[in-house]
Design a protein around this nucleic acid. Sequence first.
DNA 1: GTCTATATAGGGATAGAC
DNA 2: GTCTATCCCTATATAGAC
Lengths: 182, 182
Amino acid sequence: MSPRAALLPKLGEVFRTYGYEGASLTLITAATGLGKGSLYHLFPGGKAQMAKEVLAEIDQWFEREVFAPLRDREDAKAGIAHMFKATDDYFRSGRRVCLVGVFALGAARDEFADAVQGYFDRWREALAGALRRAGHPRAEAMELSEDILAGIQGALVLARAADDPKLFSRSLTRLKRRAASR
Amino acid sequence: MSPRAALLPKLGEVFRTYGYEGASLTLITAATGLGKGSLYHLFPGGKAQMAKEVLAEIDQWFEREVFAPLRDREDAKAGIAHMFKATDDYFRSGRRVCLVGVFALGAARDEFADAVQGYFDRWREALAGALRRAGHPRAEAMELSEDILAGIQGALVLARAADDPKLFSRSLTRLKRRAASR
DNA sequence: GTCTATATAGGGATAGAC
DNA sequence: GTCTATCCCTATATAGAC
């Protein structure tokens, strides 16, 4: 494992918790145990490069654990079930927010527009395809995929607002049910 | 209208756009046309006080335009319809994100926990009551109120991520339909 | 009540020793 | 590859003239 690969999850947690603007190099050095010199040696582009690589790593994780199963599994329903499980794991059952969502809402969205847009877009598209293959009519699969993604993001917002992870679990359960309703 | 009251909406837009950490006094002076001296004269508590008062003003607006109608309208369905209309207006049909949601996701949540928690909580409670009176069974009204709030917040995230306000309008239409389905 | 000037701290980023 | 020291800029906040 390259030193950089070991670093990305720690960087991710800082950006996730404090947002792009709030993630100061001081916080980053504390979280990683590396001095600024080392950080700039590894990421000459500074904070922007760190964020880009974190986003890319998240994208890869979802591509492997979520999007690909949705697209490729013979059994579409199993792919969808796998998505819900992976989503619950990734967001720690509501104790963790979505870094891409945090970036999407803030001013950083524009600087990282491609990554932000691509993440949700490919998720939605893969999900819509699976729903379609699981028996939902085309138009309904499109709508439902939007509802499910929005439901997940919204539940993360509400769970963090209320400081109540269970809210996320409850929402996820109902979304699962809607996905299966056919 | 007090000078302070005229200021709050402008402050709100800065916090909404840049988040609490990202909303620098330089951006705030640009948006308000006031120098730092004037700002500290009006808000001795600095940024934190500005944010608190902005949150309070938003809370008042929703209390008047959304929560009260949900609670008090004789015709519960009319109250719900009014909520959707006011919500669409407030978020400019998806071109504006939710400041409380932005705060909820970030590190500022803890400093403004009461305002953030109260906003969603009272919204959800008022909506659940109206759904109940509109004919939804108690348990279902509770769940549906959570789904609708999460749907709204999530749609705002996705609409901004995709830079496509229509996504918000579509979602809102479907949420309206679910609220009416009984 | 508004401004300019200033104080002090922390921001991101770089240089160079080791 | 990591650190410390340092640069320059912007941050929040204050003081005091007008």
